[in-house]
Design a protein around this nucleic acid. Sequence first.
DNA 1: ACACTTTGTAAGTCTCCACTTACGGTAAGT
DNA 2: ACTTACCGTAAGTGGAGACTTACAAAGTGT
Lengths: 106, 106
Amino acid sequence: MTYGDALTVLADPTRRRVFERLRAGPHAVNAIAAGLPVSRPAVSQHLKALKAAGLVQERSEGVRRIYSVRREGLAELRDWLDSFWGDALQAFKQEAEKPSAKKRSR
Amino acid sequence: MTYGDALTVLADPTRRRVFERLRAGPHAVNAIAAGLPVSRPAVSQHLKALKAAGLVQERSEGVRRIYSVRREGLAELRDWLDSFWGDALQAFKQEAEKPSAKKRSR
DNA sequence: ACACTTTGTAAGTCTCCACTTACGGTAAGT
DNA sequence: ACTTACCGTAAGTGGAGACTTACAAAGTGT
């Protein structure tokens, strides 16, 4: 059920921008907050949420905290999407092959 | 920017259950609402949101509205995830190959 | 014409959460 | 030791949205 956490966390636009910022590589909190329209504590809270969802990982480097993407967190969400794909296709074929059983009252 | 809409819409657990219900195939609103812990109007609102995000499509059959999954809506989200994958990998390699230069305060 | 079914929408309530400011803790430089 | 930089957390606030009930519209059967 972790893909649900990923979806919940990635729903917020600002948090998504934080996450996308890490796509280019690991960054410290200050660097991430620079250029974003919110305060630095807000970014810290977003990173905390992302970490709780398993989407990022943290590494200490002196007084700095370097955050980077954790790909395994994305994997579960990706699998969920893929499962959707196949099932939807199969269901569509089933629907197309169905002769004319549309009378489904009661 | 449509993948953002998909993420926003799929963040809600109830709405996700509605969407997953359609994975098995097209269904009318009543059939979807049955078994869910919310009222039928709530399901209608969720379906409206899913449709606005391009994740489902609607087909009228008499007085019923049959909803089904729209795979193109998922495609953009999938591409976004994939782009993340590659970029994160590339960034990781770059980081690994980097000697220990580029340290500002060192 | 009437009753029933199926669904969408309006209006209102209430909970959740993203954000801010303020503060505390830790590391590094002088 | 003092100062400065970097960061996380606490507390409080405002706004978004998920849900409910009530109502209206459109199709179907008798």
